[in-house]
Amino acid sequence: MPGFFSPFITKPDSVSQIMLKVLMALIPGIALYVWYFGPAILVSITLASLTALATEALMLRLRNRPVMPFLKDNSALLTGWLIALSIPPLAPWWLVVIGTAFAISVSKHLYGGLGNNPFNPAMIGYAVLIISFPVQMTQWLSPHGLGAIQLGFIDQLNYIFLGVFPEGIKLDALTMATPLDTLKTQLHLDGQIREILDMPIYGRLAGHGSEMVAAGFLLGGLYLLASRIISWHIPVVYLGTLFAVAGLFHLLDPAHYVEPLFHWFSGAAMIGAFFILTDPITSPSTHKGKLIFAAGAGLITYLIRAFGGFPDGMAFATLLMNICVPLIDAYTQPKVFGKKEQKP
């Protein structure tokens, strides 16, 4: 029965479809990930998806909420995918499971479930992991053609689930620091940007391979913009701020501050700009608020990358700006119809 009160018609649109479109928009990035780094990421995504759905169902049951309608909204799935994409693919299985389970149970359901979480659950999951398991979280797979040895899919599975490698192979031979991490370390060793970027780990714009994955996320992000799932405010201002601040430092001291495009295509900048900061639940609802939120996140990301203790600042920038959302919303309420200064 439709409602007894108007309106009697609704647009055929649902939370489930919105989340599904966001998941679809991640696929180009994931495809390029597999192309450059092998299929291990698919294992992480599968693990994260299953953990997310199981945790979601369990929490819904514990909270006496209907399970099926919420499982079908695809929001838990999205959280799982984002966590899987933000941690090293060749990692013990429990890493992604702990991160996902914590994100869904604590940062989502303990705050009231869908729509009520003040912090981005995926970024909470990531933050918990990087603080609790810093070693496992920094062992990233080297892209094809760069690592000393390539591991087959079966061998990868053996390591993920059982923690064993084929005879004579060690984890160090397979993994390396991320481009952002390497840059930071080399700069600490008094390296010059020009020399550092000549290292084989770097490609045309940023990290070899990872720059293409970032480009994949940019492509998916443009699809989200085109299909009006997200508005331009957050990605444009976030990337713009990151570019402007990085550009300023680069102009002042090109030997020690890398050029802005490097920042765009490294780390989580692209996926963050289009998929993480744009999470409607944890971002401001007013247009002006979105601009402030995104500019703040861009600035914090750069400050952490250039001066902070972590190689990437995306996750902490998101969480720090998430805290500010209620305040930003309260102070950026727009004037309503007829109550603006009229310009006839």
């Binding site: 649902s14 919420f70 929001s75 009520n116 409607p280």
Partner: peptide
């Protein structure tokens, strides 16, 4: 006028 679907929480979209 198809039957209304059950309401989900607001996701502040």
């Amino acid at each position: 006028f198809p039957p209304a679907l059950p309401a989900l929480p607001c996701i502040r979209c």
